[in-house]
């Protein structure tokens, strides 16, 4: 737990610095911009607090640096992008659904073991997509490690943010 609080402090320091940097160029910001800036700085601070040791932190930093080239417009478009993504995923999922149905019609008897394996595979894919930098994890062991680390750091982040937000 000592480690956890240390992580929190580290995160807070880095986050506040990042906020200072973010806030300086543009004085006028809409609430969405502000929110995005805060989130971006928080994520970056979290990634830097982990010192780039893990895949996900490196992925976050890389993504942020890619985005920062195109300035804030990309960040503004983030919500649109996500919507687009989810549409794509929906379409793909329908496709997969159809394929699954066809498979089922072909072979009625699906072994329960293989079914469980498929379920696990699907879930690991989803998890890879959720955890930043999960695509670089080639095996499940590293994916699990990344997920553990990511969850812990997210918790620290949330704790600190809640402290700041729920303080009034």
């Amino acid at each position: 737990m000592q480690n956890f609080s240390q992580l929190k402090q580290e995160f807070l320091k880095k986050w506040l610095k990042g906020l200072k940097i973010c806030s300086s160029p543009s004085k006028k910001m809409g609430i969405l911009e502000r929110k995005n800036a805060i989130k971006l700085s928080a994520d970056l601070a979290m990634a830097f607090a982990r010192k780039g040791r893990t895949y996900w932190s490196r992925a976050v930093i890389a993504k942020a640096s890619r985005n920062s080239n195109n300035d804030m417009t990309l960040i503004k478009n983030a919500s649109k992008q996500r919507f687009f993504q989810s549409k794509k995923i929906m379409k793909r999922s329908q496709n997969v659904h159809r394929v699954l149905l066809r498979n089922k019609s072909l072979s009625r008897k699906v072994l329960p073991n293989s079914m469980a394996k498929r379920l696990v595979k699907k879930r690991t894919q989803v998890l890879k997509r959720l955890v930043p930098g999960g695509d670089q994890c080639l095996d499940e062991v590293s994916l699990m490690r990344e997920t553990l680390d990511y969850i812990i750091s997210l918790r620290a982040q949330i704790d600190v943010m809640r402290c700041l937000a729920g303080a009034k």
């Binding site: 973010c22 300086s24 609430i31 929110k35 949330i158 943010m161 937000a165 009034k168």
Partner: peptide, 19 residues
């Protein structure tokens, strides 16, 4: 995290709090 950042953005008039 998203929600909290939104909330912080909403609560604070400026991004940098009294650092």
């Amino acid at each position: 995290v998203e929600f909290l950042s939104m909330r912080l953005a909403a609560v604070n008039p400026r991004i940098d709090f009294n650092l």
